[in-house]
Design a binder for these strands. Structure first.
Lengths: 338, 338
DNA sequence: AACAACATTTCAAACGTTTGAAATAATTGC
DNA sequence: GCAATTATTTCAAACGTTTGAAATGTTGTT
């Protein structure tokens, strides 16, 4: 095989010209003679010259790598969001390194340090459900590397760039939809309390109730940390009082909605087939269910990803100052099934 | 913020010693005085020194990056396989860049070229369903960069490293399971004909039939390229002859099995609830179905990923010669539900 | 006091590329 | 035919690290 790697120097020797001429020819410098360019480019093609990225990166003080830290690739929200990131990143000459935290803070810190060592040019991160201290992520900004929080972000912290779904609007819309269908007893099944979306969605829910004169009942609200048993006990609570039985349910996420549906069916809940469900997600899987939810809240993850990478690249290019903190909201869309 | 980046040189100036002493102190060279090491390491910690990977990569002629090309992250097989890859790669000091081909050959070629420019140290690839020419992947081996094909691989080509599920065994087992449950008319719904697994699984199916004296009927075999309409028409064919009605179905992949179930239900097929299904995948989603499949063939994607990265690292370290082509099989496991 | 033996530090080149400044070659005007 | 332009090529330093060889410093032995 190729024992001597094909470098600029190698090409230069072959062509009997200097390394800089070769470099400039390949980079299409106007000062280089057309004929020379042609000769160089031809030789480069023939010998399969590939510029060494490490060298370029060192010279340019850029890695051309963007890091993403996210909880889990098994969650379709994140997988779909990557699609948006990838496309725009590639177009702009960036590679993407994805690192999963598995919702484990220790793993998240590891990932952050690893990406820092790799000198990523920017970072997109959806924090784990346990992240409360941000030292491992603040390092980046301290070194001048921009960070965009997407979806899951530090609720209390205003000094950071955020791209997130307009989850208030999504939940408002869903609740309104159920009210319009005549429901008076609408339950809200929220996610982990540490995730700020849990509360934003709740606000959407309660605002829709208030705006439409539907009385609020705290019995109709419960939370789960996504753990199966935790979810079941939350659902039990929601359906505990026979005097105050929900006829509809808004769920923080489709998987826990499925758990709810499964549980109610398993206990042969009398009104099982009358209850109407709406959840965040819009999984393709829904179409295979015998009694599918009435609607889904589509969060447009591709768009969230795309907005995150666009903002990040603007920050990298210093088109936006790193301390001029931005907040981008992506609207949700209610998809009615059937 | 930090205007002057913290480099070895910067540390050296602060400490009034040479760059090489600092470097060696940080790398724990035995020739460096203990006290000096202490001073250097302390200063490095205090100033948050992070070695510049591009420089190291350039010097070591390694990128410490492993590339993965796969069709799609929405497919849980691939997402789960990444889990296996990631862990072992990180442990060995490698970063992973994942690139999706979306089963599009052009995109696959682009990804390959991008990863080649990034000078990945090794490549793990599951080819698109349209890949028949391998020039874009052969480049890597020509440059001495090892490539491991996993799962989807060039069937006819023996001169490559492969890690794959023992899909013959999986399909044999599933078919045998259905035979043991008394089925005589077992349909086989295969995947795209270009994917070699389609045929290996078919062989497992037919061998199980033969070994157990169940007559084979070509009417009970159909193929789909995963396209919805294509799948429906394949299913129609399987259930076309009333004289030869299947009582069980082995499906190449759970999503197309779901399509089959949905279709048969939608046409109110008389024996709908008697038909027993088995598919490759073991999606977590199954538990939410009203009439779930009788069993799933678990392909152990994590293990496939782990074996692929282990082999790749051995190849990178030249513990195995790059031309000593390896084939690793990972057994499937039949999971009976309910 | 001289010198071997060892401990420790520094020098200097290398990895492959980019790029402004300097050098050289080719062309033009007079 | 020679200076003045302009076109083209080359020089040389830089990016941040590693590493064998060379230099320097320190002890101990006689």
């Amino acid at each position: 095989m190729n024992n001597t790697p094909v470098t600029l120097k190698f090409l230069a020797e072959k062509l009997k010209m200097s390394v800089s001429t070769v470099s400039k020819a390949l980079n299409n410098y106007p000062t280089i003679n057309e004929y020379t360019k042609q000769r160089v480019q031809e030789m480069a093609r023939d010998l399969h010259f590939t510029p060494n990225k490490s060298a370029i990166n060192l010279k340019e003080k850029k890695s051309h790598i963007i890091g993403i830290i996210l909880p889990n690739l098994l969650d379709h929200f994140f997988t779909r969001s990557i699609y948006g990131v990838e496309q725009f990143a590639t177009q702009n000459g960036y590679n993407v390194i994805i690192s999963q935290s598995h919702d484990d803070l220790k793993k998240e810190i590891q990932s952050a340090n690893m990406l820092l060592r790799s000198r990523v040019d920017g970072l997109i991160v959806a924090i784990s459900k346990h992240t409360q201290d941000f030292a491992h992520l603040d390092q980046f900004e301290n070194m001048g590397i921009p960070v965009v929080y997407y979806t899951r972000n530090p609720s209390f912290n205003l000094s950071c760039h955020k791209v997130l779904g307009n989850t208030f609007q999504g939940c408002y819309q869903a609740t309104k939809f159920l009210i319009d269908r005549g429901h008076k007893k609408i339950a809200y099944l929220g996610g982990p309390k540490m995730i700020n979306f849990t509360h934003e969605r709740f606000n959407g829910y309660i605002n829709a109730l208030n705006d439409n004169q539907v009385p609020f009942s705290s019995e109709l609200v419960a939370y789960t940390d996504f753990d199966k048993e935790n979810t079941i006990s939350a659902i039990k609570n929601l359906f505990a009082n026979p005097e105050n039985m929900p006829t509809a349910l808004v769920a923080f996420k489709e998987p826990i909605m499925f758990d709810a549906m499964k549980y109610l069916k398993s206990i042969n809940h009398p009104d099982f087939d009358k209850i109407e469900y709406v959840g965040f997600g819009n999984t393709s899987f829904i179409s295979y269910l015998d009694s599918p939810p009435i609607a889904s809240i589509e969060e447009n993850p591709e768009s969230v990803g795309e907005n995150a990478i666009k903002l990040l690249i603007q920050l990298i290019n210093k088109e936006i100052d790193i301390h001029n903190y931005q907040k981008v909201m992506v609207d949700c869309k209610l998809i009615v099934h059937g």
